[in-house]
C-alpha cells in the first residue's frame, strides 16, 4: 500500500491527475519519489534552502506536518498527504 497525495490545481498541469501514489516512509522521501515521477515538481514545493514553500501546507492524514517533524514526519503506508495552498481562510 503506497501513500496517496492529493494534488492542488496549480500542480495538476504537471501531474494531470488530482491524486498520485508515491512511496516513502517520511514526507521528504515521498516528495523525492514524486519528483522521480514528475520531474520539476519538487522545486514548486521545496525552496532552495530545503524548506517547505511557506505558501503551502502539508497535511498527513489531516495533521499539519509543522505540528510534527516537518519534512521528516514519518508516514505509514495507506496514509494521505494533502498539499494545500496556505493563502485562504478566515
Amino acid at each position: 500500500m503506497s501513500v496517496l497525495i492529493n494534488v492542488p490545481t496549480p500542480l495538476r498541469t504537471i501531474t494531470k491527475d488530482r491524486t498520485v501514489e508515491v512511496d516513502g516512509s517520511t514526507l521528504a522521501e515521498c516528495i523525492n519519489n514524486l519528483e522521480e515521477k514528475f520531474n520539476g515538481i519538487k522545486k514548486r514545493l521545496i525552496n532552495d534552502e530545503g524548506e517547505i514553500n511557506k505558501f503551502i501546507n502539508f497535511y498527513i492524514n489531516g495533521d499539519d506536518v509543522r505540528h510534527s517533524k516537518g519534512l521528516e514526519t514519518e508516514i505509514e503506508p495507506g496514509s494521505s498527504i494533502d498539499i494545500v495552498p496556505a493563502m485562504a481562510g478566515g
Binding site: R18, D82, A88
Partner: peptide, 29 residues
C-alpha cells in the same frame, strides 16, 4: 469535528473540486 484550521483544510480542497461554488473566503478571497 476539529478546529477552524481543519475546516479550512477541507474547504480549500473542496473549493478546487466544486464547480459553480463561490467559497467566500477561499476562491473568492
Amino acid at each position: 469535528d476539529g478546529t477552524y484550521d481543519d475546516v479550512n483544510r477541507i474547504c480549500t480542497i473542496l473549493a478546487e473540486e466544486k464547480e459553480g461554488w463561490a467559497f467566500a473566503n477561499i476562491n473568492m478571497r
